[in-house]
Amino acid sequence: MIMDDVAGAASESRPRRTPGPLRLGGREFPPERALVMAIVNRTPDSFYRPGATWDEDVALERVHAIVAEGADLLDIGGVPAKPGPEVTVAEEIRRIVPFVERVRAAYPDLVISVDTWRHEPARAACEAGADLLNDTWSAWDPKVADVAAEFGAGLVCSHVGVALPRTRPHRAAFADVAADALDRVLLLAGRALAAGVEADRIVIDPAHDFGKNTWHSLEVTRRLEDLTATGWPVLMSASRKDFVGETLGVGVDDRLAGTLAVTAVGAWLGARMFRAHDVRQTRQALDMVASIKGDRPPARLTRGLA
């Protein structure tokens, strides 16, 4: 399960996609609309503001706030990416599923993503109304794709390299990290299609920091067009991550400017979904880039026009 059969993988297809709308739940998003995926951690120990939304009522308040700030979808997670105390399948389900049900009841049309790498929580989340499975650990459990197919949900196909779930990269090395990421996410997109996931519900993600050092994350950012050129919608998940902190030499509380710079570059290079802690600021950065690109009319102009 850990390492793919290399010969088998080599013979699998790396499908491209005709650029077009992304469908999530009952919603359809055109290519020129960059989406904000707002993070809601159902954990006591995530790296940024640990435990901020551990209480379920507080978490729901957070959902109300970020929807008002312009979130297009939520990403609800019950297990931190970093190593730490074990979170069993049962515990992960307990953390996320009742909350997905509450959000779904409060927002019948809001797109809900669940950040999980195991098929049991994925299945329970889909039963509770999740629309997208953010499989951050690069199909460590191939049955997650089967769950997405079974429920008509979307799937994020990500790149990790050789790291296992909830591990830190140790002397990570790639001959060409951008090429490796491209190959892996396309391979997984092909497998998702084969499993029955609908093509217009598949997203690809180079997964900054996952199995990568900061040089690697900078490289996949610089070469993001290799991914966007495939036609698959690209998710950028960079918010306040260590590669931003290391690049700028700042702690987790001081990474917003760096995050927004990554966001702007990603949007310029064609990424379509941005996983974010800072929803309002991310929405503003994306709107600004969209207006520079000509994809969004500016809000209200009178300067020099009177």
Partner: peptide, 16 residues
């Protein structure tokens, strides 16, 4: 004849 009278020039907002 300010430019802002022309359609689309003021962006999303309807100015004046």
């Amino acid at each position: 004849s300010p430019p802002l009278l022309a359609s689309g020039v003021t962006g999303l907002a309807d100015v004046l």
